[in-house]
């Protein structure tokens, strides 16, 4: 009846991976990758977040509904970002100030 219990070594494994990613992201920020720097940093952060969500927050092994809830939340956040980019990214295309 109780929920799925993960072995302790999983937690320590995840912790080690998170530490490694932290070192990696600090290191990557000192390497000049041009615009890619931002994406590398965000990619590593996303990987870390995925680990935390899946193992520390027990989404792996839980009901299917929880990932749906998380992903739909992220989807709507992405909408906010995308439409903001659609506005700020295309200002001035028409060549008429203010449009």
């Amino acid at each position: 009846m109780p929920a799925h219990v993960q072995p302790v070594r999983v937690y320590f494994g995840v912790f080690a991976a998170l530490m490694a990613f932290t070192a990696l992201t600090v290191f990557a920020s000192f390497v000049n990758l041009g615009h890619a720097n931002t994406f590398v940093a965000l990619g590593i952060a996303a990987a870390k977040a995925t680990l935390v969500i899946l193992y520390f927050m027990h989404v792996k092994g839980n009901t299917k509904l929880v990932p749906v809830v998380i992903l739909s939340g992220l989807f709507f956040l992405l909408l906010l970002f995308l439409f903001l980019a659609a506005d700020y990214g295309t200002r001035g295309w028409l060549g008429v100030p203010g449009r």
Binding site: T25, N37, L42, F56
Partner: peptide, 17 residues
């Protein structure tokens, strides 16, 4: 913790090279 995982690179790690 998750929020911090994103705040850290966005605030501290912009183009350190």
């Amino acid at each position: 913790d998750l929020i911090w995982i994103f705040l850290f690179p966005l605030l501290y790690l912009i183009g350190r090279h």
